[in-house]
Simulated scan of single mutants.
Amino acid sequence: MTEQTGQGGRRPANGGPKAAARNRAALVAAAREIFAEHGLDAPLSAIARRAGVGQGVLYRHFPDRTAAVAAVLEENVRQIEQVAGAGDVPFTGVLGVLTWHLTESAAFIGLLHADRAAGRSGIRAHALGLSGRVERALRGRLPADHRLSAADDLMLSVAMVSAAVTGPTRQEREDRALAAWRLLGVEVGPVRAFGGRVTTG
């Protein structure tokens, strides 16, 4: 049985483990795009079509929605942890990468509001763990005298900024995020991905 050519003419390659790795990467990239465009309730079949693979391939990698969401969020969180662990990037730069993820990924915003994910117990539990990792990464780089260093100020501010990230275009969402940081009196470095590992549409 052969897979059909997907949307945009993409065709999955056959070739054992290498093909499996390529298919997984294509599925994660497609899931990021679909979740950003349509939210976490988007049909999984749309992800398979965007990646150019059959639904059987999708379910071999991600047996349910929780697994697909977790794979996308893991990439977001990994970048935050990587930039926070880079000794040559100031805290403002860490916030710039965080803000990039906020403007690119509706799923990532949902992660930061994981306590509201009623009805998705599996996703909620996983998201709470990932959210804790984001907080630990940010706190590890937060200067002791920073205006966000008191008690819950850091994650409350992140939640407030994420709530402001709305708009039909990426640039509009970024502008609103930066405006929210300015209103909080927080300096943010360049809004960018870190390490070039995340692909968006």
Score class of each variant (00 low, 15 high):
residue 170 R to Q: 10
residue 178 L to R: 03
residue 168 P to R: 09
residue 180 A to G: 11
residue 175 D to M: 07
residue 88 D to T: 00
residue 120 R to F: 15
residue 176 R to H: 08
residue 115 D to T: 05
residue 178 L to H: 05
residue 102 L to E: 06
residue 71 A to R: 05
residue 111 L to M: 13
residue 114 A to G: 12
residue 176 R to K: 12
residue 167 G to M: 10
residue 78 R to E: 15
residue 166 T to L: 12
residue 84 A to S: 13
residue 127 A to V: 09
residue 75 E to T: 14
residue 164 A to C: 14
residue 81 E to Q: 15
residue 79 Q to T: 13
residue 101 H to T: 05
residue 91 F to D: 00
residue 113 H to Q: 11
residue 161 V to Y: 06
residue 69 V to R: 00
residue 105 S to N: 06
residue 145 D to I: 13
residue 86 A to M: 07
residue 70 A to M: 06
residue 165 V to W: 10
residue 74 E to V: 11
residue 179 A to D: 06
residue 73 L to F: 14
residue 123 I to E: 07
residue 165 V to E: 06
residue 143 P to A: 00
residue 89 V to S: 01
residue 172 E to S: 14
residue 121 S to L: 14
residue 120 R to L: 13
residue 98 L to W: 08
residue 105 S to P: 07
residue 123 I to G: 08
residue 124 R to Q: 15
residue 166 T to A: 08
residue 136 R to M: 02
residue 69 V to A: 04
residue 118 A to Y: 15
residue 76 N to P: 12
residue 133 R to W: 01
residue 114 A to T: 05
residue 90 P to T: 00
residue 137 A to I: 03
residue 120 R to I: 15
residue 138 L to D: 06
residue 73 L to Q: 15
residue 171 Q to P: 07
residue 82 Q to P: 09
residue 148 L to N: 00
residue 73 L to R: 11
residue 106 A to R: 11
residue 166 T to H: 14
residue 110 G to W: 05
residue 155 M to V: 04
residue 102 L to M: 09
residue 117 A to V: 08
residue 161 V to S: 14
residue 139 R to F: 10
residue 165 V to C: 15
residue 119 G to Y: 03
residue 94 V to D: 01
residue 95 L to W: 01
residue 157 S to A: 03
residue 132 G to P: 04
residue 72 V to L: 12
residue 94 V to G: 08
residue 115 D to Q: 12
residue 138 L to Y: 00
residue 137 A to Q: 03
residue 160 M to H: 10
residue 137 A to N: 04
residue 96 G to L: 11
residue 163 A to C: 13
residue 121 S to H: 03
residue 107 A to P: 03
residue 94 V to Y: 13
residue 144 A to T: 05
residue 154 L to C: 00
residue 116 R to K: 15
residue 170 R to W: 08
residue 110 G to R: 09
residue 113 H to Y: 09
residue 99 T to A: 08
residue 135 E to I: 05
residue 109 I to S: 07
residue 131 S to H: 02
residue 134 V to P: 03
residue 99 T to I: 05
residue 82 Q to V: 13
residue 128 L to H: 07
residue 133 R to D: 02
residue 96 G to K: 07
residue 130 L to F: 01
residue 136 R to T: 01
residue 98 L to A: 04
residue 156 L to M: 08
residue 97 V to Q: 04
residue 140 G to F: 00
residue 179 A to K: 06
residue 146 H to R: 05
residue 70 A to Y: 02
residue 174 E to S: 13
residue 123 I to F: 09
residue 111 L to R: 05
residue 154 L to A: 02
residue 109 I to C: 08
residue 136 R to I: 02
residue 124 R to L: 02
residue 88 D to Y: 02
residue 150 A to F: 05
residue 118 A to F: 14
residue 76 N to R: 12
residue 169 T to H: 06
